Each structure stands twice: as C-alpha cells, then as structure tokens.
Simulated assay, not measured.
Amino acid sequence: MVRINSRQVEAFRAMMLTGSVTDAAKLMAVTQPAVSRLLRDFQALLKMELFERRGSGLAPTASATALYMEVERSFVGLERIAAAAEEIRGRRTGTLRIAALPALSNGYLPRLAGGFLKERPNLNLSFFGVISPLVIDWVLNNQCDIGFAEVPIAHSGLPSVRLPALPRVAVLPAGHRLAAKATLEPRDFEGEAFVSLSAGSTSRHLIDQAFNRDDVRRVLRVEANLSEIMCGMVSSGLGVAICDPFTAQEFEGRGVVVRRFLPRIDFEFAAVFPAQRSPSPVALDLVEVMQQALSELSGRPVGQN
C-alpha cells in the first residue's frame, strides 16, 4: 500500500476547493511551484491522473472527483475533532443524552433542558422518557450520559446525586367537594373512589402506608403504572389520587385541581451517571441548574406555577 504524504493530500484538496493552482497556493500559504510539485508527486504516487489541462488551467478528472469525496470526509472529521475540543473546553459541545422518568419528562424537565440548551447553541440533546428501571439500565449500559430516576436506585454502583425532594400532592376532579379545602389529610378520602399507582412500586407503598396508618378505607377503582394515566383518569371525574407534583402541575387547569396533602410524602429522585467514566462537565452543569430550580420550586405554595 502506498504511503501518502499529508501535504500532498492537502494540496489536492486545496486545488479541488479553489479550482486553480494560484488560489490553492494562497490557501496553503505556499508558492505555486510548491503546489504544482505536490500535485505532480501525488498523481505519480497514486498512478492516477487527477487533473487535465483545459485552456490555461487544470480541470479535475472523474477520478479526482471520486477521490475528493473520500478526502473531504477525512478533512471534515479532523476539523470536527478540533472544533469539538474547543467546544468541550467551553462545555458547549456534542450531544447530551438524557433518560428521565415520566414524572419529569412529561413537561418539567424538557422546559428546563430547553432553557439550558438556549445558553449553549452548539450543544444538542437526545431526550428519552422511560420508567425508572429503564433509566438505570440505559445508564448502566452507557446509552445515556445522565439519567433521572426515582430513589432508591436499584443499582448501588452507579454514581448519583440526590436532588431536592418535593412533596406529593392530592389531585381532584374540578368541582370535587374536597377542592374547597386548601390542605387534605387521609381521613378526607374515606369512601372516595381512588385512582392508584400500580402495586409493588415505591410510590404506591408510601401512599398506602399513609392511609393505612389512619385506617382510612378508599375505594380503589383504577391502578395505573404512570402518573399521567392516573391524572387523566382523575380529570374524567372518576376519582381522586395522590400524585407527584410534576405531573400534577401538567394537569392542573385541565380538569384537575391540586391541593396540599399531609402528612408529607416526598417524591424523591436522583441524577445517575455511567460508572465507567467521569460525569461529563455539561451533565454536571445541568444537575446544578436543576438543583437551583427545584430549590426555588420547593418554596412555592402548592398550585402556584
């Protein structure tokens, strides 16, 4: 296999880009004879005619056009590496891959991430809304740079950062009798048709525990694995529910009323990172922005966006 000189390739590319030896020389900051020699040696090395004389200039042959496509791919790759290095230094580069549980991905986190991207014009985003076990699986397999999952985290080996917890809230159909109260307690739900999260989940266990402590009997009408389904059922007037604050916010004003619930049942989640490498600086920046936003949100009254 022939050993190609990089300057010869650079001269060939400059010639293809500019269309003349004179302009190619200017592009390379060398003399015209130097470009001519590089092109001549390149053709001899490849045993291929790349340019043919037409009038006072040179025109590329079909072989040159085909070769240029490969050369340009290589040069674009090299230029992208240099640009990427600069962007990495400015924490603005590439694509940040996020997986997040549905409670966050149904509105709150996309809005936050959108503002985050506006300040980083060279950063792209791949965003996936999946249930917490899948978030952990994708991060474990290095399919995402950062994941947001409900705690406890099933895999203890993943680096994680706990985020500020917010209390779960009561969600009621618009016009429901309990909407007259600013704060609801378990005993208020005695005999109420109830829309619940699926059995076996951490959230379901915590919510059931609060009602069982006061020996409150609810009428369990529906079980759903997603809080969006639960809130959709509530909006139909079917029943009431206890929900994470993020999904409740998305449904408030869409046939759903949100009220404070006591005793406080925190909705807890964390940012998780692949174990095989250090978290990317831009992922850590996102976590910092989210921590600040959640801290501000925790100080607002329920029902105030």
Rank of each mutant, 00 (worst) to 15 (best):
V2P: 15
V2M: 09
R7S: 10
V9N: 02
V9Y: 03
R13Q: 10
M16I: 04
V21R: 13
T22A: 12
A25L: 13
L27N: 03
M28E: 05
T31E: 05
Q32R: 15
P33C: 02
P33V: 07
A34M: 11
V35S: 05
S36A: 07
S36H: 09
L38S: 10
L39D: 00
D41F: 02
A44C: 00
L45P: 00
L46D: 02
E49P: 01
E49T: 14
F51K: 09
A59L: 08
P60C: 03
S63M: 05
T65P: 00
V71L: 04
R73K: 14
F75Y: 15
V76L: 14
G77A: 15
L78W: 12
E79A: 11
A85I: 13
E86G: 06
E86T: 15
R89N: 06
R92K: 09
T95G: 00
R97Y: 04
A100L: 00
L101V: 10
L104E: 03
L104T: 05
N106S: 05
N106C: 08
G107V: 09
Y108V: 09
Y108G: 01
L109Q: 07
P110C: 07
R111D: 06
R111T: 08
L112E: 08
A113E: 03
A113V: 15
G114H: 11
G115W: 06
R120W: 07
P121R: 12
P121F: 06
N122I: 00
S126R: 14
F127H: 05
F128Y: 06
D137P: 00
W138V: 00
W138I: 01
L140R: 15
N142M: 03
N142D: 15
C144W: 00
D145T: 05
I146A: 01
G147E: 11
F148Q: 08
A149C: 12
A149K: 11
G157M: 07
L158T: 10
P159E: 09
R162E: 14
L163I: 13
A170P: 03
A170Y: 00
L172M: 08
P173S: 05
A174K: 13
A174R: 11
G175R: 12
R177V: 13
L178T: 08
L178R: 10
A182Y: 00
A182S: 13
A182W: 01
E185A: 10
P186F: 11
R187D: 06
S196T: 11
L197E: 08
L197A: 04
S198G: 09
S198Q: 14
G200F: 07
S201V: 12
S203K: 11
V216S: 04
V219F: 05
L220Q: 07
R221T: 12
V222C: 02
A224N: 03
N225I: 07
I229E: 13
M233H: 07
S235E: 05
G239M: 10
V240E: 04
I242D: 02
C243N: 13
C243Q: 09
A248V: 11
G253K: 10
R254S: 08
V256G: 02
R259F: 03
R259N: 01
R260Q: 14
R260P: 00
L262S: 07
L262A: 07
I265W: 06
I265F: 04
D266K: 04
E268K: 13
E268C: 09
A271W: 12
V272N: 05
P274R: 09
A275R: 15
L286G: 01
E288C: 02
V289L: 14
M290N: 02
Q291E: 15
A293L: 12
S295G: 11
L297Q: 14
S298G: 12
Q304L: 09
